[in-house]
Design a protein around this nucleic acid. Structure first.
Lengths: 206, 206
DNA sequence: ACCTGAACACCGTTCAAGT
DNA sequence: ACCTGAACACCGTTCAAGT
C-alpha cells in the first residue's frame, strides 16, 4: 500500500496496454493496486483527470526533433511521430481524444505544428489551418484503425483490408500540398535547407 | 405498448437532442417508452446497433445536391452539409463516430466525396485522400465543438473563445487547395461550369 | 410479435471514518 | 498522506416465461 500518483498512472497504463480503454475502469485500476476504488480519488479528482494525465503520458515523447529540417518535412515527421505515439498504446488515439480537455502535451504538439507551418512562411491563420487539418487527420484515422483492431481482437469484426498507413500518408500528402501551395502564394521564400537533411539521427517514423 | 423499431429510434433521438449521448442509455430509452430495458433487445441486438441506426438517421439528409456545380464547390457543400447535419443533434459527431461500424449513410457520404473529387480529374487514390482528409476534419472538429458545448452546458468548463466555424472553413480551404493542386497536375481539364452556379435552389449551408 | 421479471456482472463517485 | 467501508445511483445484457 501507500501508492503514489505515478503508481496509479502506471497501473492504468498497463490495463490500457493489455486490454484497451473499455476495460480501463476506476474499479479495475484499484483492484490491481489492491486498494478500494475510493482510494484513487485521493490522487485524481475523477476518471476524466486520470485519462487526461494518461493522455499526456502517451504524448510525452512527441517533440520536434530538428529545426534544421525543411518546414514541410518537419510537419510530416511531427504527424508521423504523433501517429506512432498513439499506435504504441491500445486505443491511444481514443484516449487522447477523450482526455483532450486540459491536456498539456496536446496543446504543445499543436504548437509545434503551427510553428513549423509558420517557418514555411504561412500566415498565422494558414498555419492554424495546417495544424487543424493534420491533427484531426491523425487522431481520427488512428481512432478508426484502433477501433477496428479492437473489434477484430474481440471477434466482433472480420479483418479489414484497409491500409491505414497508406491512407494516412495519402491524406497527409494532400494537406502538405495545400500547405506548400499557401507558402508559395505568400511571396515568401521558405527555407530550403533540405541538403542538410542527410545524416545520422534522422530516422523515420515507421 | 407494442412499440415499433422506429418508436425506439425516435425516443432515443429525443433523449439525444434533449440531454446528449452520455444520458442515452438503454434503460432510459426503455423508461421513456414505459417498457422494461430487456424489451429493447427485441428491436436491436445491442446498444451499438441502436447507435449505428441512430447515426444513419442523423446523416440521412446529407446527399449531393447538384451535379451542375463545380467539383470543388460540391466538395465544399458536402462538407458543409455533413457538418450541419452533425450540429443539428446534440453530440451528433460523437454519435456518428461511435456508430460508424456498419453504418450505411457514412459509407454513402464517403462515396459522394470521392465522386466529386474524381470529377475534378483526381486519380482514384487522390480522391480517396480528399475523402479521408475532409471526413476526419469535419468529424473531429465537430466532436471538439460539441464536447466543449456540453461541458459548458454542465458548467464543467468556461465558455471558449474558439471560432469553430472559422476553423472549419480554414481547414477545409486548405484541403481544397491541395485537391485543386492535384487536379491541375493530372493534365485533365476539370469541368468549370461555375457560371451555372447562380440561381435558385443553391442555398448555402449556414 | 412484443413484453415482463428477475437476475448477473458490472460502473463512477461521495463521504465519514480510520491510521 | 493515504486508505477503508459502506452506500448511492446507475449501467448493458441474458433468458425463461408470459400474452
Amino acid at each position: 500500500m501507500a501508492n503514489s500518483r505515478d503508481d496509479v498512472l502506471n497501473t492504468a497504463l498497463g490495463i490500457l496496454r493489455r486490454y484497451g480503454l473499455a476495460d480501463l475502469s476506476m474499479r479495475r485500476v484499484a483492484a490491481e493496486l489492491n486498494v478500494q476504488p475510493s482510494a484513487l480519488y485521493w490522487h485524481f479528482a475523477n476518471k476524466q483527470a486520470l485519462l487526461t494525465a494518461l493522455a499526456d503520458t502517451v504524448l510525452a515523447g512527441v517533440t520536434p526533433r530538428s529545426a534544421r529540417t525543411r518546414w514541410d518535412r518537419r510537419l510530416e515527421r511531427l504527424a508521423g511521430d504523433l501517429r506512432a505515439a498513439l499506435l504504441a498504446v491500445t486505443d491511444g488515439a481514443e484516449l487522447v481524444s477523450a482526455g483532450q480537455a486540459g491536456g498539456l502535451s496536446t496543446a504543445a504538439i499543436g504548437g509545434y505544428l503551427t510553428e513549423a507551418a509558420r517557418q514555411g512562411g504561412l500566415s498565422e491563420r494558414d498555419a492554424g489551418a495546417v495544424r487543424t487539418a493534420i491533427w484531426q487527420l491523425v487522431i481520427g484515422l488512428t481512432i478508426e484503425q484502433q477501433t477496428r483492431a479492437q473489434m477484430e481482437r474481440l471477434g466482433a469484426a472480420a479483418p479489414s483490408d484497409r491500409d491505414f498507413d497508406r491512407e494516412f500518408a495519402d491524406g497527409l500528402g494532400l494537406v502538405l500540398d495545400g500547405a506548400r501551395h499557401r507558402a508559395g502564394q505568400n511571396g515568401n521564400t521558405p527555407n530550403v535547407e533540405f541538403t542538410y537533411l542527410v545524416g545520422p539521427g534522422f530516422g523515420g517514423v515507421g
